[in-house]
Nucleic acid binder design. Structure first.
Lengths: 123, 123
DNA sequence: GAAACTAGTTTCCTGAATGAAAGTACCTGA
DNA sequence: TCAGGTACTTTCATTCAGGAAACTAGTTTC
């Protein structure tokens, strides 16, 4: 009945913190969400096109989609401005701003350990 | 010559911190690396099968591959023990332990904001 | 009326990520 | 010698993330 290969029961020790990590990662999944949040954290409100210009390599589709998901999860708020032509501004919600610790930790680690990254490149 | 759709030049303001975020995320990319690092951070040395048992849902292939990538990037060390049958132990390197801030920030945020997660579920 | 700006959505496509299962290899105890 | 444990690797299949380009839609400027 048991297949030959390993299919272990999870250990009783599945610590809360592992589940918490999983939750957070799921919320911030994808290539761009943390970058978007980090940018909004530093820059405050930003418009759609400015976000695209600031985030190297992102296309409109992914930006649109990631913003939608962040909005659904109350990380980012979306405000349609009464301008001609309409512009839309995005910013972190109060809840989104609680990600400060995560954003700063990730950013700081990247800065500090740049030399060590990716098998210690010749940079 | 310019296609009709938007393909903006990146803004001059492409802050160091955004690049740093990108770097860190690339290093920790994939579904499992941060979970693995978080587990090793809490538990110290662990063997292959114990890691699999502790991480809900991971299969042998992914565990093997993620560990290899973490090892290549000097986050995790791999030690073959002189036992019968051979066992292999993994632990964070000194460099891997500098991820503490990242791991703790992500874990803490998940714990604190569990109620807010995923559109404020009925949990 | 054509071009260009705003902010998207939709369609189509590709490559990467992931997973299940089987195979490799070695050793131990019944 | 056969089941079962260790630790993987390989193969095959599938799903999904991501990207390019076209398209919608309203407004403004030339």
């Amino acid at each position: 009945m048991n297949p030959k290969n390993q299919k272990p029961e999870p250990l009783a020790c599945d610590p809360m913190s592992l589940i918490a990590i999983k939750d957070t990662l799921q919320l911030l999944s994808g290539k761009w969400k943390i970058q978007i949040a980090g940018l909004l954290f530093r820059s405050g409100r930003m418009r759609f096109m400015d976000l695209q210009r600031a985030i190297d390599g992102i296309g409109v589709k992914m930006l649109s989609r990631e913003l939608q998901e962040l909005e659904e999860n109350k990380i980012v708020s979306r405000t349609v401005m009464d301008t001609k032509p309409v512009t839309v501004e995005y910013e972190l919600t109060a809840h989104g701003r609680t990600l400060e610790g995560v954003i700063v930790a990730i950013s700081d680690w990247g800065v500090t350990h740049r030399n060590h990254l990716f098998k210690q490149p010749s940079v």
